[in-house]
Amino acid sequence: MEMVRPQDIHFMKVALTLAERGLGQVAPNPAVGCVIVREEDGSPRVVGRGWTQPGGRPHAETEALRRAGPLARGATAYVSLEPCAHQGKTGPCATALIEAGIARVVGTITDPNPEVAGRGFAMLQAKGIEVTENVCAADAYYLNEGFFLTMSERRPLVTLKIASSLDGRTATHDGHSQWITGEAARKRGHLLRATHDAILVGSATAIVDDPELTCRLPGLEGRSPVRIVADGRLRLPLTSKLVRDAKKVPVWVLTLPGGDEHRRAAFEECGVTLIDVEPGDGGLMNMRAAMEILAKHGLTRVLVEGGARLGASLLREHLVDRIEWFRAAKVIGGDGYPAIAALGVKKLGDAPGFVLRETASVGGDTVASFVRGG
């Protein structure tokens, strides 16, 4: 394996930035970026850029090679995930890099897909192409953690988004909640929606708030993800906004098997997809099973936006991988509604643990990003 060169980290970060463009658009595929660089008069020059296109095809390498054309011969390709080595809807990206005459490939991390799993790098090396691995590997894993989790745990990445007061309350004692955070925080929340494959809420949130759960940022309206409601008893009104426009933006309802057949038929007639989830302890919906089902439906990144009981059930099952906590600079008090319902934690060591990744000011509010602790 070749040594890392001074410019490798810079160009790999460019490839990772390109890869981010695919988040929320490419499931069940990973979001990959590729930059093709050649030396001209002793200076590196980017001659091709690409990222995974909506729907997962074309792949990043194919896009970058197309833009580079004949300038790809003898150049270096920076790829944010190991090039695929299997025949799918398109040919292997490793083969495309070989045929284009790429002289060196810089990669991040091995693709966990059993059909690849090191074969892409091996194919390149077998043809005499220099391969440098593990450049920005941690960043690459973070970017595509949802894809990795579907391979290792058969479930998508789960991001819990919370908007609360400083003392962790989402509404006053009489239920008033709009708006705790300001417009800038809400815009950032919409950007989160655009980078996930689905938004999940509990039935109480869907009934009380009657949300649209779409991305309404200018220019990103077409990136609204699948809207999902965890509604074991099918309590969601047929007149709700979600049901009324289910034929425009997909709506899935996770529910317990059985139930009134006429009501199920009414939901389906409105365009809602019903997904049966077997009950777990206490007859409630088994959320781990639900996440595994969502992965089988091709989802890799799920954003949970409420409510308190749904968040608690996911935390109890250790299914929350990230938390995006938006906090307004105000205090509501103990008689307000908590962001997370009771977890039944008896010892601090049993509480779900997270690590702070970054904080930022968003207008007059703050957002803290956490990742699951070890």
Rank of each mutant, 00 (worst) to 15 (best):
L81H: 06
F11S: 05
P112E: 07
G42D: 09
E63K: 08
H176D: 07
L274S: 10
P156M: 04
R193S: 03
G175F: 05
G298Y: 04
R5W: 06
C136P: 05
L236W: 06
R264S: 09
T170V: 15
S369T: 14
T181L: 03
R57N: 15
G74C: 08
G353E: 14
C215S: 04
G311W: 07
L191N: 05
R57F: 15
P352L: 02
T172H: 09
A68N: 04
T172A: 09
N144K: 03
R309H: 12
G118W: 10
D41W: 02
A368W: 06
R357F: 12
T62A: 15
L200W: 00
A140G: 03
V243D: 01
A265V: 10
H86I: 10
P257M: 01
D276Y: 11
D365E: 02
R227D: 03
P28C: 03
P112N: 11
A75S: 15
E317K: 13
E130A: 13
R372Q: 07
R49C: 14
A77C: 14
I293P: 04
T132C: 15
V208L: 08
T366N: 07
I207C: 13
T90K: 02
H196D: 02
M287T: 12
V251R: 00
G107Q: 05
L18N: 11
V367G: 06
P83G: 01
T195W: 09
R264Y: 01
K347H: 14
L71I: 00
K127G: 02
S369H: 14
R21Q: 13
S165C: 04
Q178M: 14
L143C: 04
S43T: 12
T205C: 05
G363E: 09
A171Q: 02
G189A: 02
S203R: 11
L310E: 07
G363S: 13
A27Q: 14
A312E: 05
P156E: 01
Y142L: 12
W51Q: 08
E82M: 11
A75M: 05
D335L: 15
V320T: 00
G271P: 09
V14P: 01
V304F: 00
G336S: 04
M291Q: 10
A122K: 12
Q125N: 02
D260C: 13
G101T: 08
V331N: 04
C136K: 06
T359A: 05
G48S: 01
G334E: 12
I102T: 00
D350P: 13
V46R: 03
S177A: 10
G88M: 07
R357W: 11
A75R: 03
E269P: 00
A126Q: 10
G298R: 07
C34R: 01
A77S: 03
V135R: 01
A60W: 08
L200S: 07
M287H: 11
L81C: 12
Q178H: 15
